[in-house]
Design a protein around this nucleic acid. Structure first.
Length: 416
RNA sequence: GGUCGCGUGGCCGAGUGGCUAGGCAGAGGUCUGCAAAACCUCGUACAGCGGUUCGAAUCCGCUCGCGACCUCCA
């Protein structure tokens, strides 16, 4: 097979770049996983399938991929960084469970659903609570750099100080001055020196369920820190691809870059990839709006908005019929179309597998047919090489399918 | 308000200057028992206005509409 020049869109540069791993043939990829306090919904399916496709395609091209996707089981607050409640702990109180029971339960359902969507497991799936010492070490390193400060047992990242040495906002295209003036309400600044500062470590109140001892007292890590801790531990301080949903671009990924630079004096990732959102009636499907449909509801059809059940592979196909950087709108019509399209592809695959490939086969392909088949295959590869354009690739697959079916029909006729 | 992005036929969804995207749905046919599968043919597009060009869905400008992020969200 001829060499592929894979191009991928790098959010950092806002353009498609030639993919060149730091240390080929190895590729390190980190993707932000779920916060496990509820069932996975359609929106969670998209990054899982998107980066599964990246993983599979890179592997197919001969790269050796180490794919790390975390489980966030602590530190992800509801509401404002200062006032919010831990999402896991909140759910635990609600259901009268240990926080880790909540995390375990939804980690299990997440795994179940991801397996149904036919995604490969990550090479490593670290948990935030399993990396508290690493996170504390990072906080100390950032403090030593003079880029963080301690207040009442909490540690905050000093964005202004950081911005004097580095550029805060380069991933999301934000300018610090605008962020400062644009900060809307005065609530939530609290003990922070500046509203743009973010928590590295939070002091835990006595009623707080999940807390660990630290040099600053009992507390828990800030949300952004876990990804820096786990990615650098398993992929090194600079790795190839960092992925996640577009909604994590700011502040989460921006903060990861800041933390990485503060500790290691380099950007954590060479390429940043962001999948776009799934929408419903044109609006983002998400927890906050409550307009989400869980994957299990899709698989069983048990949701008021669903006219029928859709198989996991229909969902996977549906997601892949759009380029990952486009929004994708949910509707029953769209899913039904996906269901039939997927079935058609699988039928074609069955035919291909049943075909006889022995040299003396009665199937005599003429040069033109061979050329057409090869052209479709090449085109499909070209689409994949162009920033994983699965929508285009699938289109070419259908062209290929048509050819194969024609040849198959001809084979039947000549055999009879 | 700031930053960014989007608007393609009944429904999805590609495509960045000229060369059929594709799928689903619809109409007709191969098929003269029914159904399924497959194949062939067909129609309906590029938000609006103006500009650049021999030529624009594709470039430029304006208008309208929509969304994302700026707070937790994949």
């Amino acid at each position: 097979m001829k060499a592929h020049q894979l191009k991928l869109y790098n959010t950092l540069s806002r353009q498609k770049e030639d993919f060149a791993p730091i240390n080929p043939p190895f590729v390190g990829m980190y993707v932000c996983g779920p916060t496990v306090y509820g069932d996975a919904h359609l929106g969670h399916g998209r990054p899982a399938i998107t980066f599964d496709t990246v993983n599979r395609y890179l592997t197919h091209l001969g790269y050796r991929v180490r794919y790390v996707r975390n489980i966030t089981d602590v530190g992800h607050l509801t509401g404002d960084a200062d006032e919010g409640e831990d999402k896991i702990a909140k759910k635990a109180k609600l259901e009268q469970l240990e926080p880790m029971e909540v995390a375990q339960q939804y980690t299990d359902t997440y795994h179940r659903d991801m397996a149904l969507l036919n995604t490969w497991k990550p090479s490593i799936e670290p948990r935030a609570t399993g990396h508290i010492p690493e996170q504390i070490a990072l906080v100390e390193a950032i403090l030593n750099e003079g880029l963080a400060y301690v207040v009442n047992g909490s540690v905050y990242f000093d964005v202004l100080a950081y911005n004097k040495r580095y550029t805060y906002g380069k991933l999301s295209g934000r300018v610090l001055d605008d962020l400062m003036t644009g900060s809307r309400d005065l609530d939530g600044q609290g003990e922070k020196r500046n509203a743009v500062d973010f928590a590295l470590w939070k002091n835990a109140s006595s009623e707080h369920l999940m807390k660990w001892p630290s040099p600053w007292g009992l507390g828990f890590p800030g949300w952004h820190l876990e990804c820096t801790a786990m990615s650098s531990k398993y992929l090194g301080t600079q790795f190839d691809i960092h992925g996640g949903g577009m909604d994590l671009l700011f502040p989460h990924h921006e903060c990861e870059i800041a933390q990485g630079n503060a500790c290691n004096h380099r950007d954590p990732a060479k390429y940043w990839m962001h999948n776009n959102m799934i929408t419903i009636n044109g609006q983002k499907m998400g927890k906050s709006l409550g307009n989400f449909i869980t994957l299990q509801e899709l698989f069983t059809g048990k949701h008021p908005l669903l006219e029928q059940a859709y198989s996991p592979m229909t969902i996977r196909y549906f997601i892949l019929t759009a380029q990952y950087r486009s929004t994708l709108d949910f509707s029953n019509d769209a899913l039904r179309a996906a269901q039939k399209g997927y079935k058609k592809i699988i039928n074609g695959l069955r035919i291909v597998r049943s075909m006889d490939y022995t040299p003396n086969s009665e199937i005599a392909l003429d040069g033109e047919q061979v050329q057409q088949v090869e052209a479709s295959i090449t085109a499909a590869y070209r689409a994949m090489d162009d920033d994983f354009n699965t929508a285009m690739a699938i289109g070419h697959l259908f062209n290929l399918l048509k050819k194969i079916n024609s040849i198959f029909t001809g084979q039947l006729q000549s055999a009879s």
